[in-house]
Design a protein around this nucleic acid. Structure first.
Lengths: 194, 194, 194, 194
DNA sequence: AGATAAACGAGACGGTACGTCCAGTCTTAAG
DNA sequence: CTTAAGACTGGACGTACCGTCTCGTTTATCT
């Protein structure tokens, strides 16, 4: 049912080469110093190939850093505390990679400045995480661990915000067992929210 | 004791005019679109007057948005839960003004990119809040509400991060009673941290 | 005796469609703003069909504007003055069409920048006109109107240059009887050249 | 009477450095290959300094190649033929320098494409030459060499066009005594125009 | 009839230049 | 010595266009 697609198809691998180049350069130089020209050159690609795929540097980096596979659904552990630990680990990994870490603040700023991009960011990054959370909470309700499902936005703010603040505002390195150490206290907060 | 200061003295009011201009422009246009030229022009001031006072745009905005008076010590309420609500309210007010709200993500990005500025930001913004928290926790220990003082960094991450994520990552407007609604759950988290 | 040419033969009409599209777009937008993509689209043709026929935009436009039929040999009038008027009229018509007029300066610039193309331009556009001129001068010599044949390059410069400068450097519209009005004076110049 | 001019004045020498850089690069690489970045770099100047002075590459080159001193008024020789030779020499020198030669076709094309620039070009380059011509013709009329003043535009076309075509359309090198060799024939043409 | 070979429309590709914008620095004349 | 005005360097951004290449498809000729 797909339309027959006329014209030269996109060269396979350019998307990946660009995403890889973004990761490398973010880790080496950070967001602001990674220019689109450098990214394209590193990927062995013209700048037009970049802007054919994404409308701006912010979109490119967003796509490279928050792409689909990077957010595997956290495992179902059978307990709310275990599920929270899993979600925290996923959030941590998505905020703390060498690329994501240097990209996020700059990205957040650029996203903020472009309403149309903010929309997409919300739908993709926030929305996907939110879905995991809702399912996690519903399972806890079904198990009887929670009397009622608390406001998912509040849960989201607590889990995502704690990790983000730790890494990007307080700028402390994540200690070993970071996610696990926070799982208990934050689970207690969720119970009180209900 | 001050040296007699030769030459034309600094025009009084320039600092305030600039701070006011920053607030106005941040609210109107956001951080990235508020250029230093615009800020100086709005304040009726030359650009040199800006750079004589602050070393960069980030410092200027930081000084304007996180200025001293904006962080009054939260009140001592006599209970941990009450104190937490007070701290949350202070944090909220410092993240949610019309100026602060649009400045923070961009500011965070610029701070991240400049190590020397990160230092100062840490000392001033983070450090001051941290002091309040430590005193708050010590009072709770003294009252017997907490068996031991939990890691202040973790407490800080939970309180600051939750508010920041709500406002700037999930981009939800703060509902009425926002701080109060979160105080209970987050206090529960603190107790578990201890 | 031409080799039998395997494969799909060129679609008849594409050459003409492209030439027509070039004329239209030159008249509408001028040389620099007429992009190859636009020309191909206007002709209902892919860009490859263009570059299979001509090596560059300059060649395409050159072929469309200076095509063979546009330079019919000027009539033999029996007098030098009459022949000069005829040549001037041909030159005028080849420089003053709606397409040629907007193409020429840009074309000249691109031709200048590409030595290989300059060669071809010289051979085709300049050479053909030069042949007419030489024949015209030889007839005048045979009739006794000229004592000796003047340098054809100088004659060419005077006739072609006067028309070109009028139209493209001074940018005055050609008045009625333009060629005829100049024929007398320029013929006088030729006589002095001999 | 000039207003006191506030702010930092234009650095003296930047205009000249840019003009010199344009001349060098035109001679080395031609118009199209002389990029604005290269010109600015060669002059040791930022690109902004260029665009603060001129609106486009075409204007910059125009100003550099057709600047005021480059067109000294031709001498008054006391005879029409001598004056024509002088004008031809000036025209030749303004079309045949190493810079002007490579710039002119590209410049003409860009000027053609920008109506606002065409205006200025006409007023400055064409207008100044026209003034010389009118004075030259009036002197000839006063001396009795011409019965009436011929149309200055036609005179202009003949003199300017012949030189331009020789150099830039026929692409022949100017032989020694070029201006002098043409002066006689073209003067004859002027007499017939009257 | 089937295979071969070239041309076709569409459009992605690398490369390169343009003109715009802004941060942070520097220079002037005035106070 | 500070001020307002504004020019300066440097460098990134996003746009545009050229000439090339690659699809899937069509059309003629050769086997």
């Amino acid at each position: 049912m797909t339309s027959p697609r006329r014209g030269r198809p996109r060269t396979t691998g350019i998307d990946d080469a660009l995403r890889a180049a973004v990761h490398e350069l973010l880790a080496e130089s950070g967001y602001q110093k990674s220019t689109v020209d450098m990214i394209a050159a590193r990927a062995g690609v013209g700048k037009a190939a970049v802007y054919r795929r994404w409308r701006s540097k912010a979109e490119l980096v967003f796509a490279a850093v928050v792409h689909d596979e990077s957010l595997p659904p956290p495992p179902e552990t059978g307990s709310l505390r275990g599920d929270v630990a899993g979600v925290l680990a996923v959030i941590q990994s998505s905020l703390d990679g060498p690329a994501a870490a240097s990209a996020l603040p700059g990205l957040l700023a650029d996203v903020r400045a472009d309403a149309e991009l903010a929309e997409r960011f919300g739908a993709q990054f926030v929305g996907r995480q939110r879905d995991y959370l809702v399912r996690m909470l519903d399972r806890a309700v079904a198990r009887g661990e929670l009397a009622a499902r608390p406001d998912p936005a509040a849960v989201h703010a607590i889990l995502l915000g704690t990790v983000f603040a730790w890494l990007h505002m307080l700028r402390e390195p994540a200690p070993a067992g970071f996610a696990d150490r926070l799982a208990g206290p934050l689970t207690a907060a969720l119970r009180e929210l209900a």
